[in-house]
Design a binder for these strands. Sequence first.
RNA 1: GGCCCCAUCGUCUAGUGGUUAGGACAUCGGUCUUUCAAGCCGACGACGCGGGUUCAAUUCCCGCUGGGGUCACCA
Length: 523
Amino acid sequence: MRVRIAPSPTGDPHVGTAYIALFNLAFARAHGGTFVLRIEDTDQKRSTAASEAAILRSLHWCGLLWDEGPDIGGPFGPYRQSERAEIYRVHAQILLDRGTAYRCFCSQERLDALRASQRAAGEDWRYDGHCRALDPKLASARAEAGEPSVVRLAMPLDGETVVADVLRGEVRTENARVDDQVLLKTDGLPTYHLANVVDDHLMEISHVIRAEEWISSTPKHLQLYAAFGWQPPVFCHMPLLRNADRSKISKRKNPTSLEFYERSGILPEALLNFLGTLGWSMPDPTVDVFGLQDFVAHFDLARVSLGGPVFDWERLMHLNGVWLRRLGPSALASRAAAYHRDGEREAAIAALIAERVPSLGDWHHHAAPFFGAEVPLAAEGRHLVIGSASRKKNAVRLDAAGSAAFLEAVIAGLEAMPAWQAAGIEATLRAVVGTAGIAAGDGFMAVRVAVVGRSAAPGLFETLEVIGKALVLVRLRRAVAFVQEPSALQGELARLEAEAQALRAALGQAFPTPDNAHTEVSA
RNA sequence: GGCCCCAUCGUCUAGUGGUUAGGACAUCGGUCUUUCAAGCCGACGACGCGGGUUCAAUUCCCGCUGGGGUCACCA
C-alpha cells in the first residue's frame, strides 16, 4: 500500500498538513506500506522554494518522516510537480487524442462575462462548453500557431459519478453538475486535478487520504481515471479541523503555522498525540495519551469519526504538560536547553538584551519574551488602549476604540511582508501608524506590549524580527481578542485595587500615621 | 443560493436496538503542600427537533433545523 501527503508550498507549514500527514503515515506504517511526500507547486505565482523548505523542515520536526520525497528521492521521482511538466503535457495530449479533453480558447473576459450573466440569471457557474464543439484538428492547429489556450476535461453530460469513500460510503454526483475543469493552464502547467491524478497513478498511490474539502472535486478525479483507463485509488476524506466557531481552521482564528508550535515550546510528541485525538480515538477510550508508536500499533482508518473537530489550544497544552512531565527531569532539562539554545537566534537575542543584563542571572528574565506562545497582557494591558505614557502635544492619541482596528491593521501589514527583517517591519509599522493617524509612540507601545508583554524592552523592530513572524502574529491576534474583551482588564484592575487596599491596610497597621490610623478606626 | 458532507456534555471523544450514556480537557469544590503548579478525590455537564420502524430507540429510516465544505487557468 502506498499513500502520500501532497502539500502546496504557498505559505507557512500548516497544521492541517501535519494532521493529514499523520493519518497517512499511520496508515502506511500500520499496513507495512510506503509514505510518499510530493510537492504540488504547479501554481507558479504562489509557490516558493522557501515555503517548500519550511514545510519539509516542519514535518521533520513533527517526526512525520516520509519514505520517498523530493529531498531523498525514490523510485517514482521526481517528487516535485514543477519538474514533471512534460509528464502532464503528454498525459493531457492523450486525453486530447481520445477526445475526453479539448482545447479552450476562451478569454478571461469571456469567462468573466459568462460567469456574470449566469450569476445574474441565478444559475450555477459552469463553463458553457463553447470550445467543446471546436474541431480538434483546427483547435490543435490554432494552439500550435501560438494562440493561448487551456485544456479542459470533457465531462460526461449525463449519468452520475459515484465516489466510494471509505468513511462515508457512496457519494453520488450528477455529471451534468460538474464543470469542464481546466486541466492544463495557459502557462502549460497542470491544475491540481490533472497533476494529482496523473501523479497518484504513476506513483502507484493506493489510498488517497486527504481533507474533506476535496470531496466535491473527487468526481472530476474519478472521471480522469476513467478517461485514462486507470484503476482509481481508494478514497478517504478526513474531517476538516475547525476554529472555535466551527469554520474551517484559519490563521485568523487559530495559530496554524507549525513553526508557531515549535517556537511556542510544544513538544512534537504532544502535537502528534493531540492531532491523533482529533477525529480518532484509541480502541480503549480511556487511553488518551499515546505516542506515534502506539497510534500506529492501534491505527484503524475505520475509527475515524466525521464531526469536524475544534482545535482546542487548552487541550493541546494539557497534553504538552503530560508529555513534558513524562520526560523525567534530565530529559526535560536537555529538551528545554535545546529549545532555548538555537544558534543564530540566541546570539541575536543576546545582542538585543546585552545592555539590559547586569549579570548572567538576569539573562532569562530579559530573554523570556522571545520564547513561548503567550505573553502576559494584563500587567501592562493599559498600554494597549492608551499607548505610550509619554505625551507629545498635538499628537492624536491612541484610544480604546481604535486599538483593535489598529492592531488588526498591523497584523494585515506584517502578514503581507514577503521578508521578515527589522527594516521592513519598521517601514510597515510606520505606514500603519501613519494611516491610523495616531501618535507613533502610542502605536509602537501598543505593539510592544501586545507582542512582548512589557512596556520596557529592547528596540521594537529588531525584537519583532528575532521573535519571529509566526509568534508575533499569533500574539498580536491574542492582543486583539484581549482588548475586545474589556473584562480581562477590568478583572485585573479589580484585583489590583483589592490588593492595593489590603496593602494599604497592612501598611496602616504597621506604620500608623494620624491619617491612616484614622482610616483604621473608622473602618 | 445549487450540490455535497456532518450532528453524543462548553470542547475532544467512547458507545449500544434494552447502559446509572463511559473517558479526557475546561469549569467548580475538596485534598496534599511553605507558595504555585502537578497529583489525588468529587461535582457540574450531552444523545438538536419532529415523524416513522420496533416490545424497545441516542443507536435504523425519512423530514426539519443547525453546522461545515464546495462551486477558479489556487491547491
